[in-house]
Design a protein around this nucleic acid. Structure first.
Lengths: 223, 223
DNA sequence: AGGACATATACACAATTTATTCATAAAATT
DNA sequence: AATTTTATGAATAAATTGTGTATATGTCCT
């Protein structure tokens, strides 16, 4: 669970991020402008601070400058398309990453994970997963079974990645769809079945690692 | 934890790098020009030395030349855009990598990791890469296939260079563009495809070493 | 400055792969 | 046995990448 502070004057944007982040079990605090964000930061520690650039009262850069005087908490900036030059400006202020609006919440969450992982440097990621002769190399983004490379489509790989990352945990259909497809997925629910099928097919004997939890979702077995 | 020496006359640049590196648990020593860097190197060992090219007292090249007389510590150069020739010049001096200003600290850290990983494993001590009859000499910036020199355009070489230095790792389109074109590139995304195409053509049979990761990017195969 | 050349980029469209939908079969639950 | 849920196969839609060509852009030379 991460503590996230999100500062944006658009309520809608805050709501989207909040909803999505809470789904992943994070705690979200909202600020409606830069000034409010700075004030909140005086009394509370966060794992990451998300700042929109264009805000009333105090813009994202100024807020970032103020926050930097107090803490080293990683900062992620939200910029509208066309604010390109700001990117350069921002890195000098100690901005950790940028996401251009409109963004995919899924990608935003991935970036948040990456930033926090990097800055806390606790986790130094082995970068691989193995079970018998099934080997996944996350860095190379490659899967081997019995020393042969397995060709997975992007969706199959992402699905596997998400499940392996959360192995041993019961994953509801909704969670899987939210994390692999994004919370704004409005397609057929049965699509997940199809991808599970394709993934199982590609995993051959190791398909047994994916357990169906009827009425619930799936679980990738740990050990 | 790595010991990093950063020499740049701009205090701001040093501060950015220092902040990010310390975030990742590294120890950073600062030098405000090339002369100071050389003096510090006489008394202290580092895992990597970062040198700006344009510095008062002693520029990056001269400093590198001096440092090379004492130690084999990997050197990363910071060059301003437009100092293209300088890159070539730099490699003759035994520069391990270069990053064009302005850079994204995130990418710089990734490169530092890559360089240190490589040099500590003594992998390509000679500054070359070979696979069958494909030979790349990083110092000379030259590529040979079957004993014949291959003519690569600057962009093609840089693309190959970046991919080979990060071989075995899935490189997203974004990462490649950030590192080869710079993070402030806003041209057509498909330009990368074109350069991959040209590079593959020039690599002939060895084009197979560049794997397309659909929906993701590319990977230069290790081994 | 102008021309020849190499290089970089843009872009259209073909080739290919992947994602999705949907109908039906199979399995589990009641 | 009826109902609910999941698995599967096949058809279709959608997305991504490869490639050829055209157009800039830049560099070197005279």
């Amino acid at each position: 669970m991460y503590k996230i502070l999100i500062a944006d004057d658009e309520e809608k944007i805050r709501a989207i991020i909040k909803k999505y982040a809470e789904f992943e079990g994070h705690k979200v605090t909202e600020a409606k402008d830069g000034m409010e964000a700075v004030l909140i930061c005086r009394n509370e520690e966060f794992d990451i601070i998300i700042l929109d650039i264009m805000m009333p009262e105090l813009d994202g850069f100024s807020a970032c400058r103020e926050i930097r005087k107090m803490t080293d908490t990683p900062v992620l900036m939200l910029s509208a398309r066309g604010e390109e030059y700001d990117k350069i400006h921002g890195f000098e202020l100690g901005v950790d990453d940028y996401v251009v609006k409109p963004f995919s919440p899924k990608e935003l969450m991935l970036r948040i994970d990456a930033i926090i992982r990097r800055s806390s440097s606790k986790e130094d990621e082995a970068g691989t997963y193995s079970y018998d002769n099934l080997h996944i190399n996350f860095k190379a983004r490659v899967v081997h079974i019995d020393n042969a490379q397995v060709n997975l489509s992007p969706k199959e790989y992402e699905l596997l990645f998400y499940m392996v990352k959360n192995r041993g945990i019961a994953l509801s259909r909704e969670m899987i769809i939210n994390n692999v497809w994004g919370y704004d997925y409005y397609g057929d629910e049965r699509t997940l079945d199809t991808h599970i099928k394709l993934l199982r097919k590609n995993l051959g004997d190791y398909a047994k690692l994916i357990t169906t939890l009827r009425g619930m979702g799936y679980r990738f077995e740990a050990e």
